[in-house]
Write a protein that binds this DNA or RNA. Structure first.
Ligand SMILES: [Mn+2]
Ligand SMILES: [Mn+2]
Ligand SMILES: [Zn+2]
Ligand SMILES: [Zn+2]
Lengths: 149, 149
DNA sequence: CGCAGTCTTTAGAGTTCTTCCAGATTGTTG
DNA sequence: CAACAATCTGGAAGAACTCTAAAGACTGCG
C-alpha cells in the first residue's frame, strides 16, 4: 500500500531473530500481525485476513504459525472464553477488557490497573503470569439520567 | 457414608430455592458439589465422580446441570484454558491460582489480592466481573546461576 | 390413585475449535 | 542446481460441548 520493502525487512528480521525460517506464509502472516498497531486476533480471523490479502495459506498453517510465534515470544495467548483463543501482538505486561457482547478483546490503557498484595506462590511453584480480565457487558439503558455509583 | 438424610435435605432446599425440580440426577450431583468444601470441577470430573458414586447419569446431563446451576447462581464458571470450563462452588467474589502443570484451580486465600485503580468501563458498557488468574508453574531448578537479560 | 401435561434425561448425532497426519512443496546449504 | 530438512496442506481426527428426538419422571388434579 505505502511500503513494499522496508516493512518486509522488519518482519523478516523478527523471524530470523527467533530462528523461524522465513517462508512465504510466515512472512505474510507476520506482516498482517506486526505491521500495524497492536492486535488481538483469533486464528479464524487471521486466516480470513490472509485470504483477503491474497496470501494462500491453510488454516492449519495459521494455527501452527500462531503457536510457533507464541512459543517464540512474539505473541501471547489470552484465554477469555472456553473454546476460543486470542493471540495478542502486545507481549508486554498488561491486562484486558473483554466485551462479552461483541467478543472483542482490548488492552486496558495505561498503567491504570494494579494488582496488589499478590500472595506468594505455594511452595514448589512460582508465578508464571497474572492475567486480569475485566468483562464488560452492554450498558442497559442508552441515554439515561446520571446515576450515582 | 456418615449421613443419609440431613444433607439430602439441605441440597433439596437449595434446589427448591432456585426453582429446579429435585430429580435423582440433580440431587446426586448437588450432593457431590455442595456437601463437602468448596470445589472447582470440570464436567468430565464430576461425571466420573458420579459414576463412582453409583449415580447413573449421562455426561449430557452433567453439562445441563452445571449450566443450570450456574444460571441459577449456585455455581460460577471459570475459564482458564481454551477449551475447558471449570465450575466453582464458591460464588463469592474471589480469584484463582491455576497450576498449569496439574490443571488444578484453587482459590487465592483470604483477601490477599486486591485489584486497584480499575479504569472506568468504556461508554455504553459496564463491568460485569473482574477475573484474576495467577498462573503457577512448577518451580524449576532451586538454585541456578543468575542470568542477565 | 390415575392420567395429562410438563419437565428432565439420554444416546447419539452435530458443532466448533484445534491438532494430527502423510504426502507434496519450499528454503537452505554446499 | 541437487539434496535434505523444514514446512505446508487438505482432510481426518480429537476434544469439549450442545442439540435432537424420543423415552422417562414429576406434579397437580380429578
Ligand atoms: Mn495453544
Ligand atoms: Mn456455559
Ligand atoms: Zn493485549
Ligand atoms: Zn474459586
Amino acid at each position: 500500500m505505502m511500503t513494499a520493502n522496508r516493512p518486509y525487512k522488519l518482519v523478516l528480521d523478527r523471524l530470523n531473530g527467533v530462528g523461524l525460517r522465513p517462508t512465504r506464509q510466515r512472512l505474510g502472516l507476520a506482516r498482517l500481525l506486526f505491521e500495524g498497531c497492536d492486535r488481538h486476533v483469533t486464528a479464524e480471523q487471521l486466516h480470513g485476513e490472509a485470504l483477503s490479502a491474497d496470501l494462500r495459506v491453510s488454516l492449519a498453517t495459521v494455527y501452527n504459525t500462531l503457536n510457533q510465534f507464541t512459543e517464540a515470544g512474539l505473541l501471547r495467548e489470552v484465554v477469555v472464553e472456553a473454546g476460543k483463543s486470542y493471540f495478542d501482538t502486545n507481549t508486554s505486561e498488561h491486562h484486558h477488557f473483554f466485551l462479552e457482547n461483541t467478543g472483542r478483546l482490548e488492552d486496558i490503557p495505561g498503567d491504570h490497573l494494579v494488582v496488589q498484595s499478590l500472595p506468594k506462590a505455594p511452595v514448589g511453584t512460582r508465578i508464571a503470569r497474572v492475567d486480569v480480565i475485566v468483562r464488560l457487558v452492554e450498558d442497559a439503558s442508552p441515554a439515561t439520567a446520571p446515576f450515582c455509583d
